[in-house]
Structures are given as structure tokens and as C-alpha cells.
Design a protein around this nucleic acid. Structure first.
Lengths: 250, 250
DNA sequence: ATAATAGTGTCTCTCAGACACTATACC
DNA sequence: GGTATAGTGTCTGAGAGACACTATTAT
């Protein structure tokens, strides 16, 4: 009884004492946007081992005095120059062999940003060929367990990029998370500019859900949600009747 | 252009090289059950600093060759003797000051287990007063932002136990997660024995959601979900008409 | 018989989906 | 006027909530 308890406490203490064998802790950040009806994510080409030459999500190790959110913000800013972007923790990946070199536990994050803002910020940094915005295609999980997630496609100009480490799994989990949360809250607005039309909002939803939505009921649901308000202005430069511009509130 | 890129790569390398300052990585496991219409969680009393004497979620450091899920399983088994229990990652907590002693990043997990099975397993270990099953009470977030989460109450026999570290925050997040996921999938069945009645299932839902549910539509929804099948048997030893026993499928 | 809960049948209300129609921009 | 999309009005069907009623057990 007491003997068991103290035995277990000794067990935990032995783990505490093994400070010589701490894992490294990193963050990986999936910087997500919607472009031409598709989800897209920022990828970087690895310039050193492991997985040199392969494409991967931007990442970095967590500083000893740095918060996890802070490390994710830093990685986001270093690749895009962006600040004050929606950032959310996705999942923590800790398989012992996920990094071939050494034990690395990676806390996955995702950032949501309007496409125009992302392009503008990345242009300002004059990024070269080691940074790409790749389209991602995550099929819906089928009914049968063997096609649980289906093949996740990550491609840029019709070229399929195989991702390093477990980053394909991270993207699959990310898109599932987006699909689950989009109906419930403020998530989709983060992928749009300050002022947007209902059609743009629907495009974002359709890109994430990867299926067409009913126009009428989508309008009703969005307007009833009270998460958006009309600005009174209308879009310009379109070849048809201009739509009302809305903005996200609260 | 290229200069910026290589400068950034050097920055990441400097983080990689700082292996002398890696944070410790731990798991905390909230072992959850439903008892008499309330959510309850296993707490342990800390026998050493920091927060000595305070109550906390069971936890332990992650071994250098151990997966995160494996560490959570180990902590679960060490406190309850239970194996093959539903276990899911909750969130990773990494505030630099969350542990007063040193930098500890903690991956939160939760386990769901039937109350009878939990009690039986813990009795077999003959646990003493340093382990308790405390009722947890998480109010719904109010409309106003200042009462975002409300006070989370963790009590045992009407005595409120203040938890160590950020474990109160972990429980608040956990209950939010349970509330969000319970309608969507197999989660609630994990809190029930192999065979259960619809009334028991509704009790679990009501405990998690902390509000009464409509009996008729709850029955319809559950039976239509095709996640459960009647066994043909009925409950025994009740003072009223016995209900059909169902089992979880797939 | 009485108490207490299990389980069924039915009505209504709400909301998503579908369709038809009108409105307004550029060509 | 033609074309393309924005935005509105209305019908319908599915499902949640509510209520009434019947069924079955122990005491």
C-alpha cells in the first residue's frame, strides 16, 4: 500500500533526475490561406540534413525562456514578416522516431491569413525559390477504415511535393480541425481581408470543406450569426452587380 | 534576398545548437469519469516541492525514447492500474513560468473511464489518502468576456481543492473540449460500462454539458446515430420498469 | 393498486435546401 | 438589351422539443 506509493514516487523521481536526456522541443507552423478556391500553405525547402532538399513546414526550436506561442510567432514572422496574425495550437507530435537525427518533440501550430496580405508580406521579404505557397488537398475520410484519411496531396504548379518528417500528417490533422471548427466561431474570417463579400466568405468555407454549399442557407446562417456587419460600401471593379462589403465584428 | 535567407537559417541553427538549454517535457493526465451525475477527476497530493501538499493532476516526465502517448499510458497505469483506456491529447502548456522550479513543457492528456471500473482498479492498488476522486464543476462561458471561463470548482466531499500549477486551466479546457466533442462521435461511450441503458448515456451527456436534455429527442438522436445496438437484455435490480441494455458498436 | 421509469406516437416549430424571381452592375 | 452575379420571398422536408399516452417492473 504505502510501499507501492513510495515505489512509484521513486519511479517518477528517476525520470526527473534524467535531465541529461531531455528531448528537444520545436514548433512547426502551418501558415494557411485560401487562394482561388483552394487551401494553400507556406512550405520551405530544407537546406540541411535531415531531409535536405525536401519541403517542410516552417519550424524552429523553442528557446529556454520562450513560450510556445512566442516561438510560433517568431517562426511566422521569420518566414513571412507577418505579426498579429491568428495563431492556434494544433497538436503535439512526439513519436520517438519522427526526426531521424535525434529526439524532437514538435508542437504544431497553424496561422490563418488573408491571401493578399500574405503575398504582400512575403514579396516584401523578397523570398527566393526556397519558399513556396503550395496547394493542399485533403480528402474526406471515407466510410471504410482502410481509406481513413486518403492521400493528402501537396502540390505547387501541378508538381506534387513530398513533405519531410510527419508534416503530411500534420496537414491532414490541420484540415480536419479546420473543418470541425469552421461552423463554430470566428475562424473563417481570419482568412479574409478586413472587408469582404458574402461570396468570398462562402469561397473560404467551400475551400476548407471541399464541397459546394447552398448559397441561400449560407447567407442566412452567416447573417444570423451576428459575427458580421454590413459596411454600407460595395465591391468595385467586378463585371456584374457589386456585392455588399461586410466586416467581422467581435 | 539570399542574404536574408541564410541569415535566418543561421538563426535556426543557433537554436539547434543550444542543446545545453532544453526544456523538460512532461505529461499530465486528467483521468475523468462520471459519478452520480457529475464529472469527476483523479487528483494526487504532491509529496515534494514544488507545490508540496497541494493537489494536482497525475503527471510524469517523458522518457527520451518514450512516445507522448506512451508516457500518458504509463502515468495512467501507475495511478490506477488501468490499461486499454481511451486516451486523447488535450493541449500542450508551455508558459515559461508554469513550473516555479525550472522550465517544464507539459503535454496534457485526458482518459475516459467508467466509474465502476475506475473504482475497482484503484481499490486493487489500495490507494491511500494521497489520491482522490474530486468532482469538477466548470461553468459555461458567459456572454461577457470578463467572465470568460468562470470559476472552476474542484471539490471532494464539499471541500474545495486548489490545484497546483496551471491544472485548473487544464481542467477548464478539458471540459470545454468534452462539451464540443460529445455530440460528434464515440466519446461518451468511453465513460460507460460495456452494457448500458439510454438513461445512463443521457446522464453522461448531462454531466458533461451541465444542463438537462430532452429525453425524446436524445433517444432519437442516439438510436439514429447507429453507434449503439440493443443487446436484447434488460437491466436488473431496479425498482421500476427495467430498461434495454445497449452496447457501443464500431 | 401504486409508484416510478421505459418506451411510443404525434404535433409543432425551426431551419436547411431548393427554386423562382427581382435588382444592378458592365458590356 | 444581354449577361452575370447579388439579393429576396416562399415552399418543403427533416429533425428537435414538447406532450400525451401506454408498458412493465417492484413493493
Amino acid at each position: 500500500m504505502k510501499a507501492h506509493q513510495s515505489e512509484e514516487e521513486r519511479f517518477l523521481e528517476s525520470y526527473d533526475a534524467s535531465q541529461f536526456a531531455r528531448p528537444s522541443v520545436a514548433v512547426d507552423v502551418a501558415i494557411v490561406t485560401v487562394h482561388r478556391g483552394c487551401l494553400a500553405v507556406v512550405l520551405v525547402q530544407r537546406v540541411k540534413q535531415p531531409a535536405k532538399g525536401h519541403w517542410a513546414l516552417p519550424g524552429g526550436f523553442v528557446g529556454i525562456e520562450e513560450s510556445l506561442d512566442g516561438a510560433a510567432s517568431r517562426v511566422l514572422a521569420s518566414k513571412t514578416g507577418l505579426q498579429d496574425i491568428y495563431l492556434e495550437q494544433l497538436y503535439t507530435f512526439g513519436a520517438p522516431d519522427r526526426d531521424p537525427r535525434t529526439r524532437v518533440i514538435s508542437v504544431g501550430y497553424f496561422a490563418l491569413v488573408d491571401h493578399a496580405r500574405l503575398l504582400k508580406a512575403m514579396d516584401a521579404l523578397a523570398h527566393d525559390e526556397t519558399v513556396r505557397l503550395a496547394r493542399i488537398d485533403v480528402p474526406w475520410p471515407g466510410e471504410k477504415p482502410e481509406q481513413a484519411h486518403g492521400p493528402v496531396v501537396t502540390q505547387w504548379q501541378d508538381e506534387d511535393l513530398g513533405l519531410a518528417f510527419d508534416h503530411t500528417d500534420q496537414l491532414a490533422l490541420l484540415v480536419q480541425r479546420l473543418r470541425g471548427k469552421i461552423d463554430y466561431g470566428a475562424l473563417s474570417f481570419q482568412l479574409l481581408p478586413e472587408r469582404f463579400t458574402l461570396r468570398q466568405l462562402q469561397d473560404v468555407h467551400e475551400a476548407i470543406l471541399a464541397r459546394p454549399l447552398n448559397k441561400d442557407s449560407f447567407r442566412r446562417r452567416m447573417l444570423a450569426s451576428k459575427l458580421m456587419a454590413p459596411t454600407g460600401d460595395r465591391e468595385e471593379g467586378v463585371v456584374h452587380r457589386p456585392a455588399e462589403l461586410y466586416r467581422f465584428i467581435r
